[in-house]
Amino acid sequence: MKTILSTVIVLLFGLQAAVAEAADAYVPKVYGKKGYVWDEMTPERVQVLKQKGDPVNGKEAFRGCQGCHKSDAAGVREGVYPRLSGQHASVLIKQITEIRAGIRKNPKMLPFVQDPAISVQEIGDIAEYLSTLTSYRENGKGPEDLSAKGEKLFMTNKCYTCHGKHGEGNAEKSYPVVAAQHYGYLIREMNLIRTGVRGNSNPDMVKAISGFKQSDMDAVADYLSRLPDYRTVNATPNPALVVPESSSAAK
């Protein structure tokens, strides 16, 4: 009994020392853990958002990413590597800074995005560059067309309130574009977000998707993968993408 007691005491002291040591380091607050705040403004993210992204620099810095995301940033059809072209800069910045901070788990990519592989300035540069990229290859789609079922689920579960009726997301609120993304990637992320493994799940999205069976996720993923690039949908013109020559006609 005495030995057990002293072991416990020793362990407690050890634990305390470990906690004290880690106190000065930034501790990522992950989904499901105490203190998790969705959309936390980490110091690095604040810094990136303050500076102006330079797309020319971004193109150069993106060379180190091309081995996985490919030179047109359209990723791979199987969805192992997601399409990044045309994603909102605010979303890219949120994801990259959260991956660097250890909030979103992505060990495969970490060595290539962590400091010093890319600098804080380069995060914003790359995001600016990618958000303007229009070219993309044919994306990966589901094995059979389930878009009718998928669309219904997407609307009835209010997914569109955040991701938009055309899957266009919301740049201001950092909600990602989900249209024309690879099917395999969409399924994986829904699972990772729902189970919290991704680390940066949005709690309201977790609620919205909690009743989904795997077959429901397959259908939604298929539906989203078959949507056109949101910027080509007339109903949601993006002023940033209107080319100067045609601007008079648009007015």
Binding site: R63, G64, Q66, C68, S71
Partner: peptide, 24 residues
């Protein structure tokens, strides 16, 4: 690249024909 171990494609950095530059 190698999908299993997540080794990126060499082409991504060293160029499509491996002709490289100052960085790669």
């Amino acid at each position: 690249g190698v999908i299993g171990s997540a080794a990126p494609a060499c082409m991504g950095c060293h160029g499509e024909d491996g002709s490289g530059d100052a960085k790669f």
